[in-house]
């Protein structure tokens, strides 16, 4: 086996629990409402489906480089990481707890297609509650950092939640969007979005594109230690700003300018060229370090 591959711990492939084990300081993981103390979703049982003891999300205390942190990790392999009643309530509870206890950060390991259709109303309201709870934690001075690099990405309501966080750390394999390409293809046709064209899907929703456009703060390798290093780097000296009119006005301006400039584009290649990248077609082939260097050299 190639040594560099042997030593790599893919975030994409790992379970939620394995991600947490590699992200937090060794021995610091302390789960709240662990599987032995919880019950699977009765709503899934009603539909004759097996549930999971943790309902697809782990909430915990822990430490990162000795700093106290809270973490939320969604399990993408269970029901696509989708948010049901119990799943959502665990997240809301932890975020509210963060308002009281003020850990150094809440790390939100998002791996979710959004609302769990089997519990659609409970899931939609829960995501709305998560949205408000994320903003409450941030207003209390607690940074909420989204980590996106799992097989389900961050879609639907969880895509909105990701963008409400203080910052997003994403891997090249990570995807961040609202509607999944399959949904768009089903409703609007394959000419609008060919969900089987993986390269296109990544040029529209993938980590490199979101990083180049500034929607994600950091791009990291698909590697658990790389996410850990990325979080530590981001949190060093991070000051969670109080919500303010000036900052929201600035965001509004950025989004309006971007829409005015790129509204007709349909492919990342067009946006990257407009950002000043001389050879946009080379972007998908660049490794992480080269891409970060490329972005840092772009005109602002």
């Amino acid at each position: 086996m190639i040594p560099s591959l042997a030593s790599r711990h893919s975030w994409f492939e790992a379970t939620a629990r394995a991600r947490l084990a590699g992200l937090l300081d060794p021995g610091s993981f302390a789960e709240i409402l662990p599987p032995a103390e919880s019950q699977p979703s009765p709503h899934l049982a009603m539909l004759d489906l097996p549930g999971a003891f943790d309902d697809g999300v782990v909430v915990c205390y822990g430490q990162l480089e000795k700093k106290p942190i809270f973490a939320i990790a969604q399990e993408g392999q269970f029901m696509g990481g989708a948010v049901g009643e119990i799943h959502g309530a665990k997240i809301v509870g932890l975020l509210r707890r963060a308002v009281q206890e003020k850990p150094a950060a809440v790390l939100f390991l998002i791996d979710s297609g959004g609302v769990r259709l089997h519990e659609a109303n409970a899931g939609l309201i829960a995501i709305s509650e998560i949205m408000r709870a994320v903003l409450d934690a941030r207003a209390a001075g607690v940074p909420v950092i989204a980590l996106v690099g799992g097989s389900c990405g961050a879609f639907g309501g969880m895509g909105i939640v990701a963008k409400l966080c203080s910052a997003i750390i994403i891997s090249e394999e990570g995807r961040l969007a609202l509607s999944g390409p399959e949904v768009i293809e089903t409703v609007a046709g394959v000419e609008e979005f060919d969900a089987k064209d993986r390269a296109l899907v990544w040029r529209v929703t993938g980590g490199k594109h979101r990083y180049l456009m500034g929607d994600c703060a950091e791009l990291v390798e698909d590697d658990i230690p790389a996410f850990r290093t990325g979080v530590a780097k981001l949190l060093a000296g991070w000051q969670e700003a109080a919500p303010g009119l000036a900052q929201l006005r600035a965001s509004q301006q950025v989004l309006e300018n971007r829409l005015a400039a790129y509204a007709t584009y349909r492919d990342g290649l067009q946006v990257w060229a407009a950002l000043g990248i001389a050879r946009p077609d080379s972007v998908p082939l660049l490794d992480r370090d080269s891409l970060v260097a490329l972005k840092e050299g772009l005109p602002t």
Binding site: P35, A36, P50, A52, F53, Q77, F78
Partner: peptide
């Protein structure tokens, strides 16, 4: 302590021992 292994995903299972 109680131990959990695996994930309830397609072709997989979770096992809780207490």
């Amino acid at each position: 302590d109680p131990a959990l292994c695996g994930v309830v995903g397609s072709g997989n299972l979770e096992i809780l021992i207490k």
